[in-house]
Write a protein that binds this DNA or RNA. Structure first.
Lengths: 269, 269
DNA sequence: TACAGCTGTATCGCCAAGCAATACATTTAG
DNA sequence: CTAAATGTATTGCTTGGCGATACAGCTGTA
């Protein structure tokens, strides 16, 4: 019986189909609290967290209290608001070191560095995006180009296109249609049909080539990592500056190296 | 009234002082489930997770179910056991990008790379350990030397000693006494008094120098990052191979660069 | 081929853990 | 000086989480 005295009970019960007897709401809420920082650009107050996690201030208080006692949230240095806690980085380490693809990709990528001075990244496939797992910087990079965990859209990046090109056409199309095709630069290709053509080309070439579509002035080559069934697990990508390279020179001198590395990794899956 | 029918209720109620009315047990248990992977060396079964998180199989089932639906746990590729999920890397990204020290350290470290070809790391201070947050590889590295989130003891590493040297003596001593001083190599210094002397030297020199104590054949220089109150927030460290460098040459050519970088960062706090 | 011991999955009734509401002392913003 | 934030603390109600238990599907082994 719905109780009119409880104004919140009518409202969405924090995601998840109601009749999931195994779903632990408090656990999910704790994660939502941590995820509140996904669209933050600085410390969050309890009220901010409550709003972003879609819970009331009481719940936020309890959850933040709990997470803080576990080191997964901390107070900001100036004692205004909360920030993600350092213990979260322990999970990072687990995620990376236990990932079979990262395990075999690491030494291969490390080896690549010897023959290449451009930025080399390895990222993991997550449908509409790829997530940076290993990063090897070149000389000048930006802040975000150095952080692990950064994710970028599949539809307009070299690593993303590489993974999409390994999917059945229908599936790639579904992902492109699902994701909001934001115009990141003036040259971002946001036409689904045209993107599909680029995927077809990438499939033929064995690598994806993207210029100016996500970051202006950047050219990148991406090669997918596949399991035995041919499904994409991640991608190796190499990024260079258009002020130093012509597109042709860049792809000619980097694509074969990336492809060879990918072959070495694919052999394990 | 204690109920003898509930065998688990007598036992430690999943950490945390009982009379903490704000503590949300299910939330903490969810975190414990994720932390179960800290001492795993491969996929874990439900039973494994239950054991490591110190909960029963039912709780593990529910929590894993919940975390899996949120992408924080996934099935392993061969469908045997569970692994940390990719969504955890989103929290990594938040932790790093929202950390004020990482924000200002990143460009400085990037800049350092131009004048140095050795491995440069930036790590965050967490009392008995420092956690790698930014990593710039040199040529040959090992698997663990490339992963973000990896943590190493403060007592026997360059970054760790650097941070300890910035603490009041009593506090540094307390941390050293608290942490189990494991003999990582034949040359690891596990004598508290002797370590304290090394800290004193690091304080005078303005940098910590460690050779062969954590990884054989490695020499490293560490410099602390401090806030306005002089408390350590993290450290910059540079590691080199003893097969290429004498200890003196290494410290002479790297320490000043690290110190200058640290000064640039410290100015912001 | 049966069996023992694993997996992961599913169900259920009980009750205390988690809940929302509320109050409040401080600090910040206007 | 007020108004609206901040974080903190308490309480009584009730539903969400709990542990126990059962089971189907593998895997290896005797």
């Amino acid at each position: 019986m719905p109780d009119p005295k409880r104004p919140h009970s009518s409202v969405a019960s924090n995601f998840q189909a109601d009749a999931d007897r195994l779903f632990v709401r408090s656990a999910a809420r704790a994660i939502h609290v941590l995820s509140a920082f996904h669209d933050a650009d600085g410390p969050l107050s309890l009220t901010d967290i409550a709003a972003k996690a879609e819970i009331d201030r009481s719940a936020a208080q309890r959850l933040v209290h709990t997470l803080m006692s576990l080191g997964h949230i901390r107070r900001s240095a100036d004692d205004r608001g909360y920030l993600p806690g350092l213990r979260l980085l322990d999970h990072t380490h687990d995620t990376l070191r236990l990932d079979p693809v990262v395990q075999v990709a690491t030494p291969v990528i490390l080896e690549m560095r010897k023959s290449l001075s451009e930025r080399i990244d390895f990222s993991l496939y997550d449908e509409t995006r790829v997530i940076y797992a290993l990063r090897m910087q070149s000389k000048r990079e930006t802040f975000y180009a150095t952080l692990v965990g950064h994710s970028v859209p599949t539809f307009c990046t070299a690593g993303g296109r590489a993974t999409l090109s390994a999917l059945p056409v229908a599936e790639a199309r579904e992902i492109i249609d699902r994701f909001p095709l934001h115009q990141y630069t003036s040259q971002t290709n946001i036409d689904p049909d045209s993107i599909m053509e680029r995927l077809e080309k990438a499939r033929r070439d064995g690598f994806a080539l993207v210029e100016n579509e996500f970051v202006m002035g950047e050219v990148a080559v991406g090669v997918p990592i596949l399991n035995r069934q041919g499904r994409p697990l991640g991608a190796i990508h190499i990024a260079g500056s258009l002020s130093e390279w012509s597109v042709e020179d860049f792809s000619r001198s980097t694509a074969p190296i990336a492809q060879e590395a990918a072959r070495a990794i694919n052999a394990s899956f």
